[in-house]
Design a protein around this nucleic acid. Structure first.
Lengths: 252, 252
DNA sequence: CGGTTCCTTGAGAGAACTCAACGTCGGTGG
DNA sequence: CCACCGACGTTGAGTTCTCTCAAGGAACCG
């Protein structure tokens, strides 16, 4: 059970390791700090308390009911937010990729309404709400950035709440992941079929069947977690009614 | 076609009518200004540009694609946010009651992703985003209030996005309306069955059938728009998996 | 009063779910 | 080293919940 050692600063002194440098962050191109001045980035960096490694899939960042004193920016990996109802049924509410923020649904609450769990080995930056609030007061630009993030997540959640066919939902999900992972048409999905299905309100089997259908039509090529989007326009046509929200950040 | 005349300041001079006084607002107990000092309320009042009357149901506040330079706080009535897809299908994304904010999904965008329409004769306060941002920088408390609102709406949207039975969704909706309208167990729903169904991703007929079922069980008494929740605990038990988000505001 | 919109109830159809089974992969321990 | 186990992905067959289609009654408005 070797500890996950993906932290590029793990060899540095503990203090340095605890206080990552936003200027050298691998997720900078998708973070709140994207495209702002170095001075401002340094200022924001002051609000970052430390960063945490979630070494193995399933490791919880926080659980429902925990005190909610901070938000977390994903530095690497993938985090999922989920709730568990009285019958023990899990429900995936969101996936968070590098640069995205975990815990926004708890900004106005003392306790987290959802649990956050690593999907793959991940790292996050912890930013206490109070420290963040202080920085926002000092910089309207940062405040605007955070509000944009809230607004985007809200619009996204509302779009996804719609009533769509299984094909539409899967197509929309693939396109959203493609835009957020933002490399090429080749995707490496971090999460399992089960998580995707749960997130999209579908049965695991349905997701499988849809993917098989897409592949038989030549729209995608699928090798388990590795997907190749061969016909994005077809997927886009299918997913149009969802009104996918364009991602805020692009690779610089 | 007499103009809606519910504005208590309509007899005052035009300037006064255009700049409502937050200290005398009927929606104050549910607004961002709830429970803060009079000085701070007055300060926030400075950000309020004017207020608008939407005299008849169906009147649009703004439409998808319009420039998004402001947010709107509902002063009276009820506003619905909706989108229209390529096939002309409407989808209700949210209802906004007095004290709640319309347009948050467009804070980070230049154009509104959704259309806002009056459900009943309504009034809203227009607050330019720039003016709001300025006030937020001056007052961390106001900033916190707005962030809480975003957070709450996000959590709510995610909760509602889940996969629930028709009975669960309707029960959850009734309880949420009860909490937001916050009077007694007697509810006067502003919106039609069609709107409720669309919002809950159900057919109008299904909503009717569920309400009939609830009534036959003695859980509610229904006279069209006027509902009486006779057995809230039964509804609560049914809606538990949704994880209803408690409303931020209560009547003072 | 027609005309429209809304609410309600009934009967049949369809999309997705549940249940079930099988192959694969990776980790674990004998 | 390999058998075992569990998790994951995939495919098939029957069931169910909700939708669609259809129609009638009530309320509202010009």
């Amino acid at each position: 059970m070797a500890p996950f050692n993906g932290n590029p600063q793990s060899y540095a002194s503990p203090v340095t390791a605890l206080k990552p440098n936003c200027l050298m962050c691998p997720a900078a191109s998708a973070c709140l700090t994207r495209g702002i001045s170095q001075d401002l980035i340094s200022q924001w960096n002051g609000a970052v308390q430390n960063h945490l490694s979630l070494g193995r899939p399933g490791k919880a960042l926080f659980e429902t009911g925990d005190a909610a004193n901070a938000i977390y920016v994903v530095r690497a990996g993938c985090i999922k937010s989920l709730t568990v109802d009285g019958d023990g049924n899990e429900r995936v509410r969101a996936f968070h990729l590098p640069g995205e923020i975990v815990g926004l649904d708890a900004w106005g609450a003392e306790h987290h309404p959802s649990t956050a769990v690593a999907v793959v080995p991940s790292q996050v930056c912890r930013i206490p709400k109070l420290a963040a609030l202080q920085k926002l007061a000092e910089s309207p630009l940062l405040a605007q950035r955070l509000l944009e993030r809230f607004s985007h997540d809200l619009a996204q959640a509302q779009a996804l709440a719609g009533d769509f066919t299984a094909d539409q939902r899967v197509a929309g999900f693939l396109l959203a992941m493609r835009a957020r992972l933002a490399r090429s048409t080749a995707l490496k999905l971090p999460m399992t079929r089960r998580d995707i299905a749960n997130f999209l309100r579908l049965a695991t089997e349905t997701v499988c069947r849809v993917l098989t259908r897409f592949e038989s039509r030549g729209w995608i090529r699928s090798d388990e977690k590795n997907l190749q989007l061969a016909n994005e326009s077809a997927l886009l046509r299918l997913a149009e009614p969802i009104g996918i929200v364009a991602p805020l950040a692009r690779a610089a």
